[in-house]
Design a protein around this nucleic acid. Sequence first.
DNA 1: GATTATACTAGTGTATCCAAACAAAGGGGA
DNA 2: TCCCCTTTGTTTGGATACACTAGTATAATC
Lengths: 229, 229
Amino acid sequence: MGNYDVKQEVTDKYSLRGRVFHKLRDDILSGKYEEHEELKEVAIGEELGVSRTPVREAFRQLELEGLIQIIPNKGAYVTGITEKDVKDIYMIRSLLEGLCARWATEHITLEQMDEMEENVYLAEFHARKGHLEQLAELDNRFHDILYEACDSKMLEHQLKDFHQYVLRVRKKTLSNANRGPKSNEEHKGIMEAIKAKDADLAEKLAHQHMINAYSNMVENGLHEAYENR
Amino acid sequence: MGNYDVKQEVTDKYSLRGRVFHKLRDDILSGKYEEHEELKEVAIGEELGVSRTPVREAFRQLELEGLIQIIPNKGAYVTGITEKDVKDIYMIRSLLEGLCARWATEHITLEQMDEMEENVYLAEFHARKGHLEQLAELDNRFHDILYEACDSKMLEHQLKDFHQYVLRVRKKTLSNANRGPKSNEEHKGIMEAIKAKDADLAEKLAHQHMINAYSNMVENGLHEAYENR
DNA sequence: GATTATACTAGTGTATCCAAACAAAGGGGA
DNA sequence: TCCCCTTTGTTTGGATACACTAGTATAATC
């Protein structure tokens, strides 16, 4: 993906389409809009002070991201994500994160390794202090580093997609006080395995990390997360 | 993602945007446009007899699918697919096809099982007769059946995407006289494992099947497929 | 009273217009 | 001759006008 992401950021920052896209995505992920709620182009446009054009283009992108469903001549509706979908995604991700960790072990740069270490130790600090917000942020960043380190734009793209997709349910569960520190412990293990160039171990740990994350989510939070919306 | 796929078809059939999107997608995948070739909105629009609007919306979708790269205020360029991309996709697919086979073992319906058996035996017949064209067709169909049988919209969607993505290189290699029958042998193994409800074996075989397919492609054909374009 | 046809409305689908950005070419001054 | 500024052409970004579609309510007919 290379400099594509950079350009994308530029687009999103300066173009109306990008801003609308991100605004809507955040709103959907954060639960501002109900599931199956209808999104009207003009209404959104007026709300954001733009014409229909950028809104429409944002809609197309959201559709491909699976966040809304567009029915021709009818309207756009935010798509629900079922519990089974979440489960399936985590199972798929567990495999891919494992592969990602393996590849990262083989391809990680010194800079990325440094950043990963820093991330883990910083998270350890915030965990002790009980800063849940920062912990969630660092958790996201850890995975992003891992994705970039695997040196495969295909895999990176896939994993980022999935990551986005489950963000809405994930936000709630991670700020659960128990999981945060536990999750970071696992990050540390993955980081050390990568540092030791033990690809097999890194794969296994990253795989297990996802399964643990899912288990935790099911135990305390998934139902809740649904009922709250 | 749910019934989103169905609706998507409806959109594509009746809306200009959908048609433009698919046309461009096919053209890019089939190699009509060179890598890094610039796609101009008006030019495409005139070629297809539509205005810029549907073209622009199609561009946004193509961008998210990773087929083109849009540089703000500059233009849209088709992104290349490198040999490494192909390799990565096959590695990813090998994992996901394994998972798919596992889930299919658990969820396949009687009808799907029947169709799969029929597919294998029919392919056996065509293999003996040397009908390479039908063999390729049946090969695609086999995987589609598998994807549907796994009973996971998420996984099905992913695998179909990847399948699409590598189609351009795949076509050539499969009609290679050696691989066709060999591939079908492996299908038969997967099918029997599923029928015997042996999920572990099915997963392993499907996984290996992808790796074999890739190995074969590398040995005789991948370079060629590239040089022909 | 039920049913069907029709007109109306709300919403998206498409085309077109104007503005802004960028790049390249051309002209003037040191 | 070289550099900088301006200009101009090309292409995308955004706004708006018009066309079409589907759903709905209403009215007429059986």
